[in-house]
Write a protein that binds this DNA or RNA. Structure first.
Length: 593
RNA sequence: GCUCUCAUAGUUUAAUGGAUAGAACAUCGGUUUGCGGUACCGACGAUCCAAGUUCGAUUCUUGGUGAGAGCACCA
C-alpha cells in the first residue's frame, strides 16, 4: 500500500517538474509512515517539510501543490494537508477492511515478510558458563533472545539460535576441583573448602553421583591434597593462587583420565540441567557450540595465525598481545599468556572466525549489560580477522530486578541466595515469566514484579491479553448454545457492515501488525510487539463491552463481527506464540492450583 | 580516574527527528440484570538541568547532575 502511495506522489512530482514548478534535478526520498492518530488518516508523509528548504517555499504551500496534482486512486478516499505541512492519506473503508480477510486466510502466516532478505545469521544468547544452574539474571537474556529470534525469523531472516558452551577454561577446572573436594568429604575425609570454589549444594549432589559410580576410587589423603598449596584467603593468603594450587594437585593426583571423568560428570550434569531449564522456559536452540571444539580443531591456531600474518600480534613480557587499540579498543589484549596458555579472548576470536567460516552473513551477540566492554574488543577482533565489523552486532540487555511485596529481592552468588530460573518459572508460570522479561525495552532496567506476574487480574498484562483471546474463543463456543452459526463466507462478504468507531480502531490496529513486526525486528525490540498486543487486547475488550458480537440475529452483521473477532484472535495467538507465551482457549483451568 | 548504558505523570513505562508526549498501576468518579464484571467508560497527572544543530528535539551534539555497569597474562 505504501508503495502505491509513493507512486502517486512520484507522479505528482514528475508533473510539477514538467510544468516548471519544481526544479528538474529534484528526486527526494518519499517516506510514508503510519499515522499515530486516526484523525490524521492512515498514512502520512513529511515530504513537503523536507522539501521546504531546497525549494525555499513554505511547507504548506508545497504540500498543497503536491495534493492538487495527485491523480485519483481507487484506494484513497481523501488526501489533506495538515499541521505544519504533512500530507495525510485516508484509505477507503473497503480497502482498510481487506486486512480481516487476509488475516483469516493466512492464519499464522500473516505478517510474514522479507525484511531480512533471507540473510543467514547466528543469534547467540545466554551462553552462561556451565558451572551452575541458570538464575533469574539469565532469564532476561533467554526470553529476549528467544523472542527476538522468533521475530527475526518471521521477518525473513534465516536464524540459527546458538548457545556457546564455555567448557574449556579455568572456571571449569575450579568446578571439577570443587566437585572432587566435596567427593573427598563424602568419603569421610575432612577438607577445608576453598573460598573461591563453588559453594552451592548442587556441587555436593554432583559429588554424590561421582561417588555412586566410582566408590572411593578417587580418594586421596588431605596431606596429598594440600601439599605445596599456598594459603587461602581465610588464612591470610590469596584465594586465586590457593585454588590454582588445588587444581594442579587435583589433576596430578587423579591423573588425566580420572580427572576427566569427574570433569565430564560435572559438566554433563550441569549442562543438562541448563538445557532442561531453557526448554521448560520455551527457549530452544538449534546448536550448542562447545568451546573445546575450537581448541581440539585448529580454529584457535588459525585465528591467531591470521592476526599474526596481518601483523596485529606482538610479544611483550613473555606474552602475545593483540593490537586491539589499533582498532579502537581501550587496551591491547593478551591472546597467549606467559605460561603458554591461550586466553579466553583467543577463544572468542576463534569463535568469531568460526561463525563466518560456517557461512553466516551476520553474527548477533546478545550480552548482559555487564559485558559492554566486549563490544570494542569483538569489533576489533573482527577487523583484525578481516571480517566486516558491521556484520557483527552486539546488543546489550540491562539487568532485571525482582520485586516482591514492593521490595527488591536481594541476590548474590556469594551470599548463596539466588533465585534460579527454574524456581521463577515454577513460581509465576512460563507465560508470565516470558512476557514480563520482554515487555520493557531491553536497554531499560526492568523491575520484575513477582506479585503482579502471579496475579490473575487485568493489572497483569499477560493475563489481560490471554483473556481477550479466551473471550473470543468463548464467543464462538457460545454460538452453539444460542443455536446460531458462524458462516465465514457470509461474514467476509459483509465486512462493509463493520462501520462503528470500535470496529475502525480494531481494523486499523490489525493492519499495522506487519509493520509492528518489522519495527520490532529492525530495532531488536520484542517489547514493541508486547505493547502492541496489550493495545490490541484493550481495544477488543472495549469493543466487546460496547457491542454484541455473537449473540445477534442479523446474520450478516453477526458473521462480519465474528470475522473481525477471529482476526483479532489469530493475531493475539501469533503474537503470544512469538513471545513464548501460550494463548489459552479458556482462562478457567481445572488443573490450576 | 577513564569508558559504556540509562534518566519521561506519585509508581512502572511508550514514542523510525514530526502533529495535542501514548499507556498501565495508584487516586477520584461512573457502567443500560451481561455473547464470561478476570471487563468497560471518564477525570487528575510527566520529558533531570544548561547550551547547540534543525522549519521542527523526549529523540541528535556538547557540558553538568543522578543511577547502574565495565575497566586482568579471570572466565
Amino acid at each position: 500500500m505504501i508503495k502505491h502511495l509513493q507512486e502517486l506522489l512520484e507522479k505528482a512530482l514528475e508533473d510539477l517538474k514538467r510544468n516548471g514548478e519544481f526544479p528538474k534535478d529534484l528526486s527526494p526520498e518519499i517516506i510514508f509512515e503510519r499515522t499515530k492518530s486516526k484523525e490524521h488518516g492512515d498514512f502520512a508523509t513529511n515530504l513537503a517539510l523536507t522539501l521546504a528548504k531546497p525549494l525555499k517555499k513554505s511547507p504548506r504551500d508545497i504540500a498543497q501543490l503536491l495534493t492538487d496534482n495527485l491523480i485519483e486512486s481507487l484506494h484513497v478516499s481523501k488526501v489533506e494537508v495538515a499541521g505544519p505541512g504533512f500530507i495525510n492519506f485516508f484509505l477507503t473503508e473497503n480497502c482498510r477492511r481487506q486486512v480481516i480477510k487476509q488475516i483469516i486466510k493466512q492464519g499464522d502466516e500473516f505478517g510474514d515478510n522479507a525484511y531480512g532478505k533471507n540473510k543467514k545469521i547466528t543469534v547467540e544468547f545466554v551462553s552462561a558458563n556451565p558451572t551452575g544452574p541458570l538464575h533469574v539474571g539469565h532469564g532476561r537474556g533467554a526470553a529476549y533472545g528467544a523472542s527476538l529470534s522468533n521475530i527475526l525469523e518471521k521477518c525473513g531472516y534465516n536464524v540459527q539460535r546458538e548457545y556457546y558452551v564455555n567448557d574449556n577454561g579455568r572456571q571449569m577446572d575450579i568446578l571439577a576441583t570443587s566437585v572432587w573436594l566435596r567427593y573427598v568429604e563424602l568419603c569421610g575425609q575432612p577438607v577445608v573448602f576453598p573460598d573461591n570454589g563453588y559453594q552451592g549444594d548442587y556441587i555436593v549432589d554432583i559429588a554424590r553421583i561421582v561417588r555412586k559410580k566410582y566408590g572411593d576410587k578417587f580418594l586421596h589423603t588431605s596431606h596429598e591434597i594440600y601439599e605445596g598449596v599456598p594459603a587461602d584467603e581465610k588464612s591470610g593468603g590469596d584465594k586465586e593462587t590457593h585454588i590454582d594450587g588445588l587444581i594442579s594437585n587435583t589433576k596430578s593426583l587423579l591423573g588425566k583420565k580420572d580427572y576427566n571423568k569427574v570433569f565430564q560428570i560435572a559438566l554433563n550434569d550441569i549442562l543438562s540441567g541448563i538445557k532442561q531449564d531453557l526448554s521448560k522456559f520455551n527457549v530452544n536452540y538449534d546448536s550448542w557450540f562447545s568451546e573445546k571444539l575450537l581448541h581440539s580443531g585448529d580454529t584457535v591456531d588459525r585465528a591467531l595465525k591470521i592476526l599474526k600474518d596481518n601483523n596485529y600480534l606482538y610479544e611483550k613480557d613473555g606474552a602475545i598481545w593483540f593490537m586491539a587499540t589499533h582498532f579502537g579498543d581501550d587496551l591491547d589484549r593478551v591472546v597467549i599468556r606467559e605460561n603458554g596458555q591461550k586466553t579466553y579472548f583467543a577463544s572468542d576470536v576463534a569463535y568469531l572466525l568460526n561463525k563466518f567460516e560456517r557461512g553466516f552473513e551476520g553474527a548477533l551477540y546478545l550480552f548482559g549489560a555487564d559485558h559492554h566492554g566486549y563490544i570494542a574488543r569483538m569489533k576489533a577482533a573482527a577487523k583484525g580477522l578481516g571480517i566486516n565489523p558491521d556484520d557483527i552486532e552486539i546488543v546489550l540487555t540491562q539487568f532485571a530486578n525482582l520485586i516482591e511485596h514492593g521490595e527488591k529481592v536481594q541476590m548474590g552468588t556469594r551470599s548463596g541466595k539466588f533465585v534460579t530460573l527454574s524456581q521463577l518459572i515454577d513460581d509465576v508460570g512460563v507465560d508470565a515469566a516470558r512476557f514480563f522479561y520482554v515487555m520493557r525495552s531491553h536497554d531499560q532496567h526492568l523491575d520484575f514484579d513477582l506479585d503482579l506476574a502471579k496475579s490473575q487480574s487485568n493489572e497483569n498484562p499477560v493475563f489481560y491479553i490471554q483473556y481477550a483471546h479466551a473471550r473470543i474463543c468463548r464467543v464462538f463456543e457460545k454460538l452453539e448454545q444460542e443455536a446460531l452459526q458462524y458462516n465465514q463466507e457470509i461474514g467476509l462478504a459483509s465486512l462493509n457492515l463493520l462501520d462503528n468507531d470500535s470496529e475502525h480502531d480494531l481494523t486499523r490496529l490489525l493492519s499495522s501488525y506487519p509493520e509492528i513486526l518489522t519495527a520490532s525486528a529492525r530495532t531488536r525490540s520484542p517489547h514493541v510487539l508486547a505493547n502492541y498486543l496489550r493495545e490490541l487486547a484493550q481495544s477488543f475488550h472495549s469493543y466487546y463491552n460496547e457491542h454484541k458480537i455473537g449473540k445477534l440475529d442479523d446474520e450478516s452483521l453477526r458473521n462480519a463481527r465474528l470475522c473481525l473477532a477471529k482476526a483479532v484472535k489469530v493475531i493475539i495467538a501469533n503474537g503470544l506464540k512469538m513471545l513464548g507465551a501460550s494463548a489459552p482457549e479458556s482462562m478457567f483451568s481445572e488443573d490450576k492450583d
